[in-house]
């Protein structure tokens, strides 16, 4: 009963995902508007956020600071707690529910995708490469010796773009990076930014517990054509949810489980709290 209630709740949240995404984008625009109205309750953006006395900070920026300055501040330690805890239990849900870049990319991909109707998924890479790319970011940052990821953190760049547009009525050159990443990501790399490259997501995935929220596939319940299934088509990251090595690439948006509910209900989002009983 309890488990059923929990899974229902997860399904409801997943179906309201767009709502969360738009709320997140409006929240970013709200911060500078509040400031202009002399309300200083919420300061910052998705690099670092202060709500009254509570601190939030992008974990990859904490790691970056550790690499460049060899130290942490109390605000960083406090700020990393909640993002790390959310990632620990639910994986990269920041990417699928909050990140404004993903919202824009998903909407644009839908617009472009209608013409092509591509169903082909991206062939899987090994998880090793995912972490190698993340390591590459860290090495680059250490060599540059200044917060280089500032330019490539898409949630941060979009929040800064919105904030500066409202506060100063000016857009900086660095905002062109958003456009560049968006173009390459959508037209050439087929959403590889969110799936593979983004350092913000990779850092969050690092915290994802093995028993945290994951997409589960029960082969016996699957009714669809294996190579051309609705779940495959629904995945915004061009993944095939039926495959075993879905992580670290999947960001738990749950689109595949929603679509699968109309077919065999082979896919579901579950916490894997029970110990695996498979080992006999």
């Amino acid at each position: 009963m309890d488990a059923e209630l929990k899974s229902n709740l997860i399904n409801i949240l997943i179906r309201k995902r767009r709502w969360f995404q738009w709320a997140s984008l409006s929240f970013l625009a709200l911060i500078p508007v509040l400031y202009l109205n002399k309300i200083y309750l919420i300061r910052g953006n998705y690099f670092s956020l202060g709500i009254w006395k509570a601190e939030f900070m992008d974990p990859v920026f904490v790691l970056q600071n550790l690499l460049i300055n060899f130290g942490l501040t109390t605000a960083m330690i406090m700020g990393i707690l909640i993002p790390a805890l959310i990632a620990f239990f639910t994986g990269k849900t920041f990417c699928s529910f909050v990140c404004p870049y993903n919202l824009v990319a998903e909407l644009l991909a839908k617009l472009i995708g209608k013409k092509e109707k591509t169903t082909k998924t991206v062939s899987f890479m090994k998880a090793k490469y995912y972490w190698l790319i993340f390591g590459g970011w860290l090495v680059l940052t250490a060599i540059a010796a200044f917060p280089l990821i500032y330019f490539f953190s898409m949630p941060g760049q979009i929040s800064v773009f919105l904030g500066d547009l409202i506060l100063f009525k000016a857009a900086g050159l660095e905002s062109l990076i958003i456009l560049g990443v968006l173009l390459i990501d959508l037209l050439i790399l087929r959403r590889a930014w969110c799936r593979l490259i983004c350092p913000v997501g990779a850092m969050l995935q690092r915290f994802h517990a093995p028993f945290g929220l994951r997409v589960k596939f029960e082969e016996t319940s699957c009714l669809c054509d294996f190579d051309n299934s609705p779940c495959q088509k629904s995945c915004p990251l061009y993944l095939d949810p039926k495959q075993k090595n879905l992580y670290p690439f999947c960001y738990n948006c749950g689109e595949c489980t929603t679509i699968c509910a109309r077919y065999g209900q082979a896919l579901s989002m579950k916490f894997n709290l029970k110990k695996p009983a498979l080992k006999n």
């Binding site: 911060i31 400031y35 002399k38 200083y40 953006n45 300055n69 917060p147 500032y150």
Partner: peptide, 16 residues
């Protein structure tokens, strides 16, 4: 300063 500042604009958004 250039190493430490993460360009988060929180100082901007707290200045009355």
């Amino acid at each position: 300063f250039l190493k430490r500042c993460i360009r988060c604009r929180r100082c901007v958004e707290v200045c009355p």
